[in-house]
Design a protein around this nucleic acid. Structure first.
Length: 569
RNA sequence: CGGGGUGUGGCGCAGCCUGGUAGCGCGUCUGGUUUGGGACCAGGAUGUCGGAGGUUCGAAUCCUCUCACCCCGACCA
């Protein structure tokens, strides 16, 4: 490709709208342009990268036995009403009406559509197992689109759906996808980790997220220092403290804490460690008022809280509700002296505390030296309610946990029969008995992968593409292309030979100064660069430099093609 | 949805407080000189100052409404 006839609108300065490095670089390198909030046009260079990612995905999905299909982006509401998700999805789903006033949505996902195919077409166990995938544009009306293509509203996703005759088959299909994903992200040159993930309200037997490790990631993942354990913090279990609760040693006292609303402030005022305080979090389940207790230095994990029997779905209580039930303003509430009908759930670490500090249910006062059994009843329920923190013991008993940030680029999910049952899909087994197929679904955020790759691979000069994703393999930079015949001839010669060798070359044949060409080439991040100059040609040499190399290296013109082919393949 | 902020040429910004009819850098176009790290000189083009309404002799500037975009929050007892 000749740069003079190609379209790569690079920018010296990053537009103010971009905060994340990958977003800035994608704009500066001329990969994308924003159309509206969470909506991006992929320009030619960006699209080439996207196609590269898709290619790797297709190869590995096909190798894993999945078959590509292409489903409609726009879906009729009736399908979603069958599974009840027309109402469940809420404002995240973009809805529209056709000329007949029929309801449609722009598909945020495709379980309903593929299950509709399955119930029409899959009638016999002989047709199983089967796995369909597509690469499709999805739309999710995110609360807050941000970070460019990382959290866009319209985005490209590879989604696959497996159908099996039984749970053992599903486990196999799931593993096959897990392995395929591992190969895909490995081939793409990403540093990633598969982590156990929450199965959420959907249930199911297994779920893993594939997280690209990056400080800018929106997800927190916990991993063990000494074992393979890794899980999304939403899911990572906080074990109960190993030591039993100490005996009460101090009397309960009410102390004035005016204006001290946060645990940190109360602890500082009293000169007590934060870990000796307890915060009470008021939540509502319908009309029931619940108090959740976590240690002052811990934070509530809402996913875990929603797994407490009887609590889901819950929301945080309003100030008025808190005053009605506790006769006290938020900031001073606590578990002592509660009306018996109020429900209290203590985190495991709170249940092991003695002589702790908590709100006195009286504005401006806290209690110190509080003890279960003596000053208040033992908590009605004890559960794992908190987010793990670095240094917690690993749930598998090996080592301690550390926390890293990750960008979720893939998610595999064992669904079971939720959708097949809801939509009446069934097949006949060997005995002629009908069963709903066991389903799995498997997603990869294709557009997000591009952003995530940049987050992991850039320097002060620009992008550094992992080779399998690079839009071109090699950039050819002639110095004096338009002035010096020898340079132009050598360049054209090399360009032709490299192209014939199957290497994708971007030739910078613009009449630009060398500095501009170098800067642009580094910004767009091609892995290999060759410079051709008059002075080099006189020595019979050209100059090669890898994008990560500190300096160039001279190659003899006569065997340059062979040497370059070797490096690039 | 709540809070904050920003909309001025393709990009980055100044001007606004204290009204007088728009400016800087980059980019872009033309000519010339340059040519191994984002050149220099000269000349040029590009703005309904997000939109609507109002105040005023006069509005980018003041007022009202509105739209778009960005950031933060939604972990709080």
């Amino acid at each position: 490709m000749r740069l003079s006839r190609y379209f790569i609108p690079t920018l010296k300065e990053a537009p103010a709208e971009a905060e994340l490095v990958s977003h800035q670089l994608m704009l500066r390198a001329g990969l994308i342009r924003r159309l509206g909030s969470g909506l991006y046009t992929w320009l030619p260079l960006g699209l080439r990268v996207l196609r590269r990612v898709e290619q790797v995905i297709r190869e590995e999905m096909n190798a894993a036995g999945a078959m590509e299909v292409f489903m409609p982006a726009v879906q009729p509401a009736e399908l979603w009403q069958e599974t009840g998700r027309w109402d469940v999805f809420g404002p995240l789903m973009l809805r529209m009406k056709d000329r007949h006033e029929r309801d449609f949505c722009f598909g945020p996902t495709h379980e309903e559509v593929i299950t509709d195919i399955a119930r029409r077409e899959i009638k016999s166990y002989r047709q199983l197992p089967v796995n369909f995938y597509q690469i499709q544009t999805k739309f999710r009306d995110e609360i807050r689109p941000r970070f460019g293509v990382m959290r866009a509203r319209e985005f490209s996703m590879k989604d696959a759906y497996s159908f099996d005759a039984d749970k053992a088959g599903l486990a196999k299909s799931y593993q096959a996808m897990f392995d395929a994903y591992t190969r895909i992200f490995t081939r793409l040159g990403l540093r990633f980790r598969a982590v156990a993930a929450d199965t959420g309200a959907i249930g199911g037997s297994a779920s893993h997220e594939f997280q690209v490790i990056a400080d800018s990631g929106e997800d927190a993942i916990a991993y063990s220092t000494d074992s393979g354990y890794a899980a999304n913090v939403e899911l990572a279990e906080a074990l109960a403290p190993a030591a039993p609760r100490p005996a009460a040693a101090r009397p309960m006292e009410k102390v004035p804490t005016p204006g001290k609303v946060r645990c940190e402030d109360v602890a500082a005022l009293l000169g007590a460690p934060l870990a000796t305080t307890v915060k009470a979090i008021a939540v509502m389940h319908d009309d029931e008022f619940w108090l959740l207790l976590v240690r002052g230095d811990h934070t509530l994990n809402e996913v875990k809280a929603s797994k407490v029997p009887g609590l889901a779905p819950f929301r945080f209580a309003t100030e008025a509700e808190i005053e009605r039930h506790l006769h006290c303003k938020p900031g001073y509430i606590g578990p002592v002296g509660l009306a018996p009908e109020l429900r209290v759930v203590a985190d495991r670490s709170v249940a092991a505390m003695a002589d702790f500090v908590c709100g006195a249910n009286e504005e401006g006062f806290h209690f110190t030296g509080v003890n279960f059994a003596r000053d208040l009843p033992e908590p009605a329920a004890v559960a794992d309610l908190r987010n793990v923190v670095p240094g917690d013991p690993s749930p598998d008993g090996k080592g301690t946990l550390q926390i890293a940030r990750g960008i979720e680029v893939g998610h595999v999910f064992a669904l079971g029969t939720k959708y097949s049952e809801a939509m009446g899909a069934s097949f006949l087994d060997e005995q002629g008995q009908p069963h709903p197929p066991e389903m799995g679904c498997y997603g990869i955020g294709v557009t997000r992968v591009v952003g995530a790759a940049i987050e992991q691979n850039y320097d002060e000069r620009g992008i550094i593409w992992p080779t399998p994703m690079a839009p071109f393999q090699l950039g050819l930079v002639p110095i004096g292309y338009h002035k010096i015949d020898a340079v132009r001839e050598a360049t054209e010669n090399l360009y032709r030979q490299l192209t014939e060798a199957g290497i994708e070359v971007l030739l910078d044949d613009r009449a630009e100064r060398p500095g501009v060409m170098f800067a642009d080439m580094e910004l767009i991040g091609l892995p290999h660069r060759v410079v051709i100059s008059e002075r080099g040609l006189k020595e019979g040499q050209i100059e090669y430099q890898g994008r990560r190399d500190a300096a160039g290296e001279k190659l003899d013109c006569r065997n340059a093609i062979a040497l370059l082919s070797e490096r690039i393949s």
